[in-house]
Design a protein around this nucleic acid. Structure first.
Lengths: 155, 155
DNA sequence: TATTGTTATACTCTATAACTATA
DNA sequence: TATAGTTATAGAGTATAACAATA
């Protein structure tokens, strides 16, 4: 969101613009396929069993159970997912992706993958790329570390 | 913002959560120093000469000339910056950071730096860290590349 | 009483337009 | 007329609360 001007290596100054671009890429690609980024996330997450309820689905992609309703209304209306009341618990809905929805999710994922690959090509040889991804994984794990979060993210 | 489930290395799935955490870190640290992230960005950018006008300052940090007004009102009211009409062009304001504002910017930057360093410590030896930063720079530059943007970011 | 889906409401951040004073 | 600063307004995205049906 913001520059953090410091003398040394500025991690935020490197990562934040990159994240902004990746978000724009997701938005652009999803849009070309007639989806919002959340709709694509829903489709992609729901495409892999086990089937989930609406709430679980929302939670699985970091969305919320309130907003997912309208998106599912739209996806269902376009024949990309089906919503059926669970016979064992009539409060909850089972979400299933139709073959059409599955194809759409796959083609979107393919384009998205091609776009990020075209970005990653800037990093050079294969082993540099692997090292980058490994380092990013280490950072991602540290981000989830309770100790680090308690020390640095408490208000 | 969103998961991009693909088979191979998922750049967005690695970078986006990291960016979210870095943003949360900035928000948290700035808040501890009584600032919003934008206010900190303003203070940090204005702290280094050449002195700028409001609009240039906003542009320099990716902010906009409308919203910076209220932030400068606040910063000025707290004695962290001064706003003086430019004598050569009475339409524009010259923004200057006070010694107090400078100290606040520095202490905030120090904490921010310490937080990201604690993250980067997860990456291991010094040369791995350097390689990561170099790779991120390459990605950042590729993000700005007109060819890539035209191919992947057009709507 | 608790939970699932649903709807309504409010809040934050951002984007656009319009006004003033200077040039 | 054009520009810098300012103000007001509208929009997207998000978060919170309340409701009906079901358990």
């Amino acid at each position: 969101m913001v520059l953090t001007r410091t003398a040394g290596p500025d991690l935020a100054g490197l990562v934040l613009p990159l994240a902004k671009t990746l978000t724009a890429l997701e938005t652009s690609i999803a849009r070309r396929h007639g989806l919002t980024t959340w709709q694509y996330a829903i489709l992609a997450a729901a495409a892999e069993p086990p089937w989930r309820t609406q709430g679980e689905l929302a939670g699985a992609i970091g969305y919320d159970r309130n907003r997912i309703v309208a998106d599912l209304d739209d996806l269902e209306g376009r024949g990309l997912v089906t919503r059926t009341v669970d016979a064992t618990d009539r409060r909850s809905n089972r979400i299933e992706v139709t073959p059409t929805g599955r194809r759409l999710a796959h083609s979107t994922a393919r384009d998205l993958r091609a776009g990020t690959d075209a970005l990653l090509a800037a990093v050079g040889p294969e082993h540099d790329r692997a090292a980058l991804l490994a380092a990013l994984e280490a950072l991602r794990d540290r981000c989830a570390d309770d100790g680090w979060r308690a020390r640095w993210l408490r208000r």
